[in-house]
């Protein structure tokens, strides 16, 4: 038997919003430690990894490990039926071919349940090597979303360049060139407005706007986003899910032909 109850059900709604443009189907791997998802987009350019720790749920029971293959478009449709303040419970029997989502209003006066068929997905998991990143940049998630949206007008790619002076985002195309520089903030009233850079060595990498734009669908999840970069390895874009886990996107760089 698997049962996970989340009073802050809107976190799950936001997680689905962050995934549905990039992935059409994926498996949720459930264990007594929590729920995990790892999947590549269809083009195998990016990888998404989601972790929801058991202790972040208000009730969590997972008697035996199970992998629930789901059509994420369908799951997203169902989660859109939950109100932002609804309590969400996910339930499945062992070896079941369906999953049930229960939405309770905070006053318990409205209860809805939706059943969805599970899929048999033969998904491969990738081993992500432990990496000490050359540069780790933390910035407001809304700022990152704005930068990517603005620069996407100029070209298909964004160059992210991190030095000890700050981080520079650049794009070039037919209409011209755009450059946005962010310096590390000296002092801020609110921690979530800060730009912080931890740098071991300068690093410059080029990434496809299309994917970065899809990653910023997770902006609703967290006030800050963390970008981790090292020469010639995938970029990591991480958003925290409250204090119960994270959504991490890995994006392969563009390389010189």
């Amino acid at each position: 038997m698997f049962e996970a109850r989340l009073v802050q059900g809107n976190l799950l709604k936001k997680v689905l919003e962050s995934l549905k443009d990039l992935l059409t189907e994926a498996s949720w791997d459930c264990a007594d430690t929590g729920i995990q998802l790892q999947a590549m987009d269809n083009s195998h350019v990016s990888l998404v990894s989601v972790q929801l720790r058991a202790d972040g749920f208000d009730k969590f029971r997972c008697d035996r490990q199970l992998s629930m293959g789901m059509n994420l478009t369908s799951m997203s449709k169902i989660l859109r039926c939950a109100a932002n303040d609804d309590i969400i419970t996910i339930k499945a029997q062992d070896q079941a071919d369906n999953v049930t989502f229960v939405f309770e209003s905070p006053n318990q006066e409205k209860v809805a349940d939706y059943e969805m068929k599970l899929m048999n997905l033969d998904q491969e998991h990738l081993g992500i090597p432990e990496t000490d990143y050359a540069a780790v940049i933390k910035l407001p998630a809304a700022e990152f979303q704005r930068i990517i949206k603005d620069l996407s007008q100029f070209g298909e790619s964004v160059v992210i360049s991190c030095t000890k002076e700050g981080v520079k985002f650049s794009a070039a195309g037919d209409i011209g060139v755009g450059n946005i520089k962010l310096a590390q903030t000296a002092s801020v009233d609110k921690e979530e407005e800060a730009v912080t850079i931890e740098m071991q060595e300068p690093v410059t990498l080029t990434f496809a706007c299309r994917y970065l734009n899809m990653f910023t669908k997770a902006t609703c999840l967290a006030p800050q986003v963390t970008l981790s970069m090292s020469p010639e390895v995938p970029l990591v874009v991480e958003y925290k899910i409250g204090d119960m886990g994270h959504v991490r996107y890995y994006l392969a760089p563009k390389i010189e032909d």
Binding site: S46, E124, K254
Partner: peptide, 14 residues
């Protein structure tokens, strides 16, 4: 010109 790399060139299949 730059070319898009695949994530599979960096992470191994388990």
């Amino acid at each position: 010109m730059s070319k898009q790399a695949s994530i599979l060139s960096f992470f191994n299949r388990r």
